[in-house]
Simulated assay, not measured.
Amino acid sequence: MTPQKLITDYIVDVWMDGDADGIEPETPIAELNIIDSVGIFDLVHHLQDEFRITVPVSEVSLKNFRSINSICDLVERLRKEKGGSAA
């Protein structure tokens, strides 16, 4: 399963009651209140567990958590920095 699918599924299951209607890779999830600031920290914890990465507090920003694509970009960058595979 791709990182995009894993992240999308988690967001849909936790914050959208399993209803993926209207969620696209560029949907502004924070701006549409799909996920709030407290939820972002839950998502950070999930990303760290799922992808075995460390998300520094400095990376927890609206820019990095604006959409599923931006979250995927963050995960891929952190995986590469760690020396792991981005796939």
Score class of each variant (00 low, 15 high):
1 M>I: 10
1 M>T: 11
1 M>H: 08
4 Q>H: 12
4 Q>K: 14
6 L>N: 05
7 I>F: 12
9 D>A: 09
10 Y>M: 01
10 Y>E: 02
10 Y>G: 00
10 Y>K: 07
11 I>D: 02
12 V>T: 01
12 V>P: 02
13 D>R: 15
13 D>C: 02
14 V>A: 00
14 V>R: 15
14 V>D: 02
16 M>Q: 06
16 M>S: 10
18 G>S: 03
19 D>V: 08
20 A>H: 12
21 D>T: 15
23 I>M: 14
25 P>D: 04
26 E>Y: 03
26 E>I: 03
27 T>G: 00
27 T>E: 00
28 P>V: 05
29 I>C: 06
29 I>E: 07
35 I>T: 06
39 G>R: 09
40 I>Y: 04
41 F>A: 07
41 F>E: 01
42 D>I: 06
43 L>K: 01
44 V>T: 03
44 V>W: 00
45 H>Q: 10
46 H>K: 06
46 H>F: 15
47 L>C: 14
47 L>F: 08
47 L>E: 03
49 D>Q: 12
49 D>R: 13
50 E>W: 03
53 I>C: 04
53 I>V: 12
54 T>Q: 10
56 P>S: 03
57 V>Y: 04
57 V>S: 10
59 E>S: 06
60 V>G: 00
61 S>T: 15
61 S>F: 00
62 L>G: 13
63 K>H: 10
63 K>P: 02
63 K>S: 12
64 N>C: 07
64 N>D: 03
65 F>I: 02
66 R>F: 06
67 S>I: 06
67 S>M: 09
69 N>C: 01
69 N>S: 13
70 S>F: 09
72 C>L: 11
72 C>F: 08
73 D>S: 13
74 L>F: 09
74 L>D: 07
76 E>F: 06
76 E>S: 10
77 R>H: 10
79 R>D: 00
79 R>K: 12
81 E>T: 12
81 E>A: 15
82 K>G: 04
82 K>A: 14
82 K>Y: 07
83 G>S: 11
83 G>D: 00
83 G>Q: 08
84 G>S: 14
85 S>H: 06
85 S>N: 13
86 A>L: 05
